[in-house]
Simulated scan of single mutants.
Amino acid sequence: MDTRQDELRRDLDATLQARKELGKEYEEELVDSFMKRLDARLDARVERSVASRLDDYEPDHRDRHRSHRPWAPGRAGNRLAVISLALGIPLTAIAGSPESGGLTGLLACWAGIVGVNLAAALGNRRDRDERRPRGGWD
């Protein structure tokens, strides 16, 4: 048998022996004490198991993709750019029609699209700079 099982068996035997000596009036306290020790051992075993499984994974897996691929497909800046271009097609047709202002409407429409994307890009850059750890020389 495993040494941990031997320890558990000794603890159980000691608890049963103490129950025989102390009587039934202390049975609840003895069982609670044994269960607390058993819970602590189970918790430690689960923590060791989880820690060993986490060691199998690459620790910086998620952070590596964020830092090396700033224009990854799932980023909010890319989504805004794609949505802006998709909405830009019908807006170009609407704003470029003679009833909506022609060239002036077209320029206003695309200036708005560029402005929104530029503001989002600058906001993302500022957020990224704020999260960057600073050294002692900054």
Rank of each mutant, 00 (worst) to 15 (best):
residue 35 M to N: 11
residue 19 R to T: 04
residue 65 H to N: 11
residue 70 P to A: 00
residue 56 D to L: 15
residue 57 Y to A: 15
residue 84 S to C: 06
residue 51 A to I: 01
residue 34 F to Y: 11
residue 2 D to S: 09
residue 21 E to T: 09
residue 13 D to Y: 07
residue 45 R to K: 11
residue 14 A to R: 07
residue 36 K to F: 07
residue 78 N to P: 03
residue 7 E to Q: 14
residue 16 L to M: 06
residue 138 D to W: 13
residue 1 M to S: 09
residue 21 E to N: 08
residue 88 G to E: 02
residue 99 E to R: 09
residue 93 A to H: 01
residue 5 Q to W: 03
residue 38 L to M: 12
residue 19 R to L: 07
residue 12 L to W: 03
residue 48 R to C: 05
residue 19 R to V: 04
residue 135 G to Y: 04
residue 38 L to G: 06
residue 68 H to W: 14
residue 93 A to I: 02
residue 13 D to I: 13
residue 45 R to T: 02
residue 27 E to G: 04
residue 20 K to E: 11
residue 108 A to R: 03
residue 35 M to R: 13
residue 19 R to W: 14
residue 52 S to F: 07
residue 56 D to G: 14
residue 66 R to D: 15
residue 126 R to V: 13
residue 97 S to Y: 01
residue 27 E to T: 02
residue 122 L to M: 10
residue 79 R to S: 08
residue 124 N to E: 10
residue 12 L to E: 00
residue 102 G to V: 02
residue 75 R to T: 09
residue 1 M to F: 03
residue 113 I to K: 03
residue 82 V to P: 02
residue 109 C to H: 00
residue 54 L to T: 01
residue 136 G to A: 15
residue 112 G to D: 05
residue 8 L to H: 07
residue 49 S to M: 10
residue 116 V to R: 07
residue 125 R to E: 08
residue 72 A to Y: 06
residue 83 I to W: 15
residue 15 T to R: 02
residue 86 A to D: 00
residue 66 R to Y: 12
residue 121 A to Y: 05
residue 42 L to D: 02
residue 58 E to P: 12
residue 100 S to K: 09
residue 108 A to W: 07
residue 27 E to A: 07
residue 87 L to N: 00
residue 27 E to N: 08
residue 69 R to Y: 15
residue 104 T to F: 05
residue 82 V to S: 01
residue 4 R to C: 06
residue 125 R to L: 13
residue 134 R to P: 08
residue 14 A to E: 06
residue 53 R to L: 15
residue 102 G to E: 07
residue 133 P to H: 12
residue 96 G to Y: 01
residue 94 I to P: 01
residue 41 R to C: 07
residue 107 L to P: 07
residue 57 Y to R: 15
residue 64 R to G: 05
residue 129 D to R: 15
residue 100 S to I: 00
residue 130 E to T: 04
residue 83 I to K: 08
residue 126 R to L: 13
residue 15 T to W: 06
residue 19 R to I: 03
residue 99 E to Y: 04
residue 57 Y to T: 14
residue 77 G to D: 02
residue 118 L to W: 08
residue 33 S to F: 12
residue 68 H to C: 12
residue 128 R to K: 10
residue 55 D to M: 07
residue 48 R to G: 08
residue 130 E to G: 05
residue 47 E to C: 01
residue 89 I to P: 00
residue 1 M to T: 11
residue 2 D to P: 10
residue 98 P to F: 00
residue 125 R to Q: 06
residue 55 D to S: 12
residue 91 L to K: 00
residue 103 L to Q: 11
residue 86 A to V: 12
residue 7 E to V: 08
residue 103 L to W: 14
residue 38 L to F: 13
